[in-house]
Nucleic acid binder design. Structure first.
Lengths: 138, 138
DNA sequence: CTTGACCTTCCCACTGCAGTAAGGTCTACC
DNA sequence: GGTAGACCTTACTGCAGTGGGAAGGTCAAG
């Protein structure tokens, strides 16, 4: 299998497969006489693992750790769980921040006529020097 | 006022003030004989506007548009509102994606013993070729 | 033998900053 | 006058994760 086939089967672009190889996230593949990378079913499995982890929002570094644990049959599930729950906490933080932004913006937008006139509470809030108009995010 | 004072008063680092100037987000300031940038209260106001927009999660590009509208006294509030509601939609999308990741991870983590043993449903899900174990995100 | 679909490496762009290096300048104190 | 240190200047590097493209080698079908 060449990189194109591996890409189609794993859902990871050829570009990213090369990148993951460069940063040591996947093992260096064998090369044919033409210097083409050569992949086997096991490598596809590996790539799908990465793709799934990335889909769940794990960073490449977290993904790297998960791969290491995956490969280590002596691992403790506690280590895996810690990475996962840490990531859940990160997600929670980000979600809360974005939700707060959203609430503020929704409130501002609700008070904006959204017509041809220049008067706009959104701009008024942004331009406001004082900490008054709306409860401030962050 | 030098850049340090502007930074303290606006809450934008000197680094970022120079950056915003370089990318045309703020007007080029006057310079003193020593080549130091010179800021006036009006510029602080400008910087605070940017900071507030950034705190609400607007991209620099969106911020640039908001500034343009802010400066334009002939603007229609509809344009401002459109940028804001577009951004709310972006926030919503991201929040939904992250919330979905979170749900999946919480579910997987709940089923993980988190002990010294290697058996782990999280890794099993990540390594799973089929679309079975848990409802897939994205 | 040509066409086009592959593959290769390498370099650049993006966002929104942070850091660092090498230098000039101002202020205060001795 | 000298010196310390707090400030300013430009310019370059890096980060995460890609996407894009150039310039070239390779392979299979027609």
């Amino acid at each position: 299998m060449n990189i194109g086939d591996a890409s189609r089967l794993s859902g990871v672009t050829a570009k990213m497969i090369r990148y993951y190889e460069a940063v040591g996230l996947i093992p260096v593949p064998l090369r044919g006489a033409n210097d083409y990378r050569h992949y086997r079913p096991h490598d596809i499995h590996w790539l799908r693992f990465i793709r799934r982890a990335r889909d769940l929002g794990f960073s490449l570094e977290q993904t790297r750790q998960l791969i290491t644990l995956w490969q280590d049959h002596e691992r403790s599930s506690a280590e895996v769980k810690r990475i996962a729950t840490d990531h859940v906490a990160e997600l929670n933080d980000k979600i809360c921040q974005m939700a707060a932004m959203r609430e503020t913006l929704v409130e501002l937008a609700e008070n904006c006529q959204g017509d041809h006139r220049p008067e706009c509470p959104i701009l008024r809030d942004l331009a406001d020097d004082e900490m008054t108009a709306t409860s401030r995010v962050s």
